[in-house]
C-alpha cells in the first residue's frame, strides 16, 4: 500500500519536473523574460508579491467573492432543481432560461453586468451564473433517472410525498449534486477571475492580472496565474473533502 502511494507521488513529481524543465528550456530558448519568463523568475516574482500585504488582501477578497458566488449559485441551483423536478410549469418556464444562460458566453454577461451593477459585484454574479446550470443539470438528470422500481415501491406502500422526496428522490439526486458541485467550482474560478479582469474591481487577483499585462510585468502575470491555479485546486480539494465527509458521516 505504502509503496503504491510512494510510486504514485514519485510519478507525479517526475511529471512535474519534466514539464518545469520543458518550460525552463523554452524560456532559455526565447531568452526574453518579457515574453516567456522561466519558472525561477516566476517563483521569485511570487515570493516578492507574497511579501506585500496587498497580495493577501487581493487574494482573500477574490476568494470571498468567488466562494460567495459559488455558494449562491449552488443554493439557487438546488432551489431551481427542486422546482423544475416537482412542477411541470416551473420546468417549462425555467429550463429554457437555464439552457440560454449555459450557452451565453461569459464575456457577454460580464459586459452587461458592468452596465447594471457595481464592479465588485460582477465577479460574484458571474461565478453564480456559471455554477447554476451545471449543478441544476446534474441534479435534474439524476432526479429523472431515479429508479422506477423504488417509485413503484413507494406507491405500493403509500409513502407520503415528503418521504418520497426525502428518502428516494434526494438520495438518488445526491451523486449528481456532488459531481455538479465539484465541476462547478472550476467554472466559478474561471468566470470569477475573467470578470475581475474585465471589471477591475479594487483588491482583486483579476485586476492585478490585467495590470501586470498592462505594465508588461510578465513574471507577475505568471505569478498571479499560478496563484489562481493553486487556489482553484486547493479549494476544489477542500470542497471535495467537505462534501465526501458529509456523505460518509450520513452513511455511518
Amino acid at each position: 500500500m505504502i509503496s503504491i502511494l510512494v510510486n504514485r507521488h514519485l510519478k507525479r513529481i517526475l511529471a512535474l519536473t519534466f514539464w518545469l524543465s520543458v518550460w525552463q528550456l523554452c524560456a532559455l530558448k526565447v531568452g526574453k523574460e518579457l515574453i516567456l519568463p522561466g519558472p525561477f523568475a516566476v517563483v521569485k516574482a511570487l515570493v516578492n508579491l507574497a511579501a506585500q500585504s496587498g497580495f493577501w488582501i487581493n487574494t482573500v477578497t477574490t476568494i470571498i467573492r468567488i466562494i460567495s458566488g459559488y455558494l449562491l449559485g449552488v443554493i439557487s441551483a438546488v432551489i431551481l432543481a427542486i422546482l423544475t423536478c416537482r412542477y411541470e410549469t416551473a420546468d417549462t418556464l425555467i429550463s429554457p432560461v437555464i439552457r440560454v444562460v449555459r450557452a451565453t458566453p461569459v464575456a457577454s454577461f460580464i459586459i452587461l453586468a458592468l452596465l447594471w451593477m457595481g464592479k465588485s459585484n460582477v465577479p460574484v454574479l458571474m461565478s453564480m451564473l456559471m455554477v447554476i446550470p451545471v449543478v441544476w443539470e446534474n441534479i435534474t438528470a439524476q432526479y429523472k433517472a431515479t429508479d422506477k422500481n423504488l417509485i413503484e415501491m413507494a406507491q405500493a406502500y403509500r409513502l407520503s410525498d415528503w418521504k418520497k422526496f426525502r428518502y428516494i428522490y434526494v438520495p438518488s439526486a445526491f451523486p449528481g449534486f456532488l459531481s455538479g458541485c465539484l465541476t462547478a467550482m472550476g467554472l466559478a474560478w474561471k468566470s470569477g477571475i475573467a470578470a475581475e479582469v474585465l471589471s477591475q474591481p479594487k483588491a482583486a487577483i483579476g485586476s492585478n492580472l490585467y495590470y501586470s499585462k498592462l505594465y508588461l510585468e510578465t513574471p507577475e502575470l505568471f505569478a498571479w496565474t499560478a496563484v489562481v491555479v493553486i487556489l482553484s485546486m486547493l479549494i476544489e480539494k477542500i470542497i471535495r473533502f467537505l462534501l465526501f465527509r458529509g456523505v460518509s458521516h450520513e452513511n455511518k
Binding site: L150, E152, Y167, E250
Partner: peptide, 8 residues
C-alpha cells in the same frame, strides 16, 4: 425484486 433503499 427486494426494492430496498440502499442508503438506509
Amino acid at each position: 425484486e427486494d426494492r430496498l433503499l440502499p442508503w438506509l
